[in-house]
Amino acid sequence: MNIIYDIQTDTLTIVFTEAPVAESDEAAPGVILDFDAAGNLVALELLDAFRRVTHPQQVTLIIP
């Protein structure tokens, strides 16, 4: 899994798998879901991330 914050575009992307994206859907305004050909979620993209996420440049990994 990769988490990418692009400060130039203020976009936060979480990539779950490196499968090719076959389809994208805007689940809510500014929330893009990318799917592979089998319908599995490949990535999640947040537009205008700075106003949606506290500290988008900072990631905390929690493993219970």
Rank of each mutant, 00 (worst) to 15 (best):
V53T: 08
A22C: 13
D10V: 03
M1W: 04
I14H: 01
L47A: 12
Q8E: 10
I3H: 00
I7W: 00
V42L: 03
I4N: 11
A38F: 09
S24D: 08
L12I: 02
D48L: 13
A37C: 07
L61R: 12
A28I: 06
D48Q: 15
V15F: 01
M1T: 06
L46I: 04
T60V: 13
D34H: 11
E23M: 11
A27N: 12
P29L: 14
P56G: 07
V21N: 08
T13R: 10
Q57D: 14
I4S: 07
G39F: 08
Y5I: 03
N2E: 12
Q57E: 15
A49F: 02
E18P: 08
A27H: 14
L44E: 05
A43Y: 02
L33R: 07
Q58W: 09
R52L: 09
I63Q: 15
A28E: 09
A19T: 08
V15Q: 06
A37H: 08
T54E: 11
L46G: 06
L47H: 04
Y5Q: 01
I62S: 07
G30E: 10
R52Y: 03
F16L: 06
V15S: 00
T11Q: 04
T54I: 13
A43M: 08
R52Q: 13
V59Q: 02
E26P: 07
I14E: 00
P29Q: 10
I4A: 05
V31Y: 08
F35S: 08
N40G: 14
M1R: 04
F35Q: 05
D48S: 14
D6V: 04
I32M: 15
V53N: 06
P20I: 06
L47T: 14
A43C: 05
Q58S: 10
E26D: 09
G30W: 12
L44R: 03
A38N: 11
F35T: 07
P64D: 08
I14V: 12
G39N: 06
A37N: 12
A43K: 06
L47C: 06
A49T: 05
V15N: 02
L41Q: 04
F50Y: 11
G30S: 10
V15E: 03
V59T: 09
P20Y: 10
I3K: 00
D25T: 15
T9P: 04
I63M: 10
V53Q: 06
I3A: 00
D25N: 13
A22F: 15
D48E: 15
A22Q: 14
D10P: 01
I32E: 09
D48T: 07
F35M: 12
V31F: 14
N40S: 14
F35K: 15
V21P: 10
A43H: 02
P20R: 12
D48Y: 10
D36C: 03
G30F: 13
I14S: 02
D36K: 02
